[in-house]
Design a protein around this nucleic acid. Structure first.
Lengths: 120, 120
DNA sequence: CCGGATCCTTGTCGATACTG
DNA sequence: CAGTATCGACAAGGATCCGG
């Protein structure tokens, strides 16, 4: 198993910049979204999301989010098979950010994306 | 001048996913942050931000954000020299998202990033 | 000079095949 | 089922060049 060496690179002391150092990509916040919407989730349940993340990207994001303690395994000691991931308190605290983001998209992106819906 | 062909790819109808289709990278929200914090800003002022975006990335992001009407030129008809970018109403509406994100980072990232400060 | 555009290198993403 | 290995495509970074 490959796991992160814990050495994060921070571009500046700005909190927003730091948040984006962790979450500034197209997938990390989608993983958090799935966990907020559906509760604990297994590897293959993440793969079933409509955005279709690929397996290696999912594994690397789960690894990073675990290292930074935004998520954790539901049963750390059990075999990885059928084991799930869940939010920590830190990950769950991203809910207001995601709500603000979803609200913004609903209000300001519908001109460009007619098929967008209220919530998945 | 090269400009975007307006064809965005949307991964799903989910608003959060759609927001991340636009803003899910390490730089776009930092541009919005600069505009919220400092008001209208020129090309070289963006380059002076402590995170040091490179010129080509900045140009392509400004172009995309302009196409999606999150930002606009302060004086569209004037020469590009010394012209600045400012937020539209749509871009300004991202303030709650950035505030939530900054608040989250301040509360949950300081264990990993000791040098982080309240606000830049 | 300022606002980019271009070139080139490096790194990350994404698809698919594969393994315990 | 939960990942890992591999490889090609593409995006980011960095330096420099150019038009006004």
């Amino acid at each position: 198993m490959m796991h992160h060496d814990g050495k994060m690179e921070w571009r500046s002391p700005c909190p927003i910049s730091s948040a984006l150092d962790v979450l500034g990509d197209k997938w990390s916040l989608l993983i958090i979204r799935d966990l907020i919407l559906h509760g604990p989730r297994t590897y293959s349940q993440f793969l079933d999301a409509p955005e279709h993340i690929s397996t290696n990207i999912l594994a690397s994001r789960l690894d990073l989010l675990t290292c930074l303690k935004l998520i954790e395994r539901t049963n750390p000691d059990a075999a990885s098979r059928n084991n799930a991931y869940q939010l920590t308190e830190s990950g769950a605290a991203l809910r207001p950010t995601l709500e603000a983001m979803g609200k913004w998209a609903g209000a300001h992106l519908s001109d460009f994306h007619a098929d967008m819906v209220r919530m998945p």
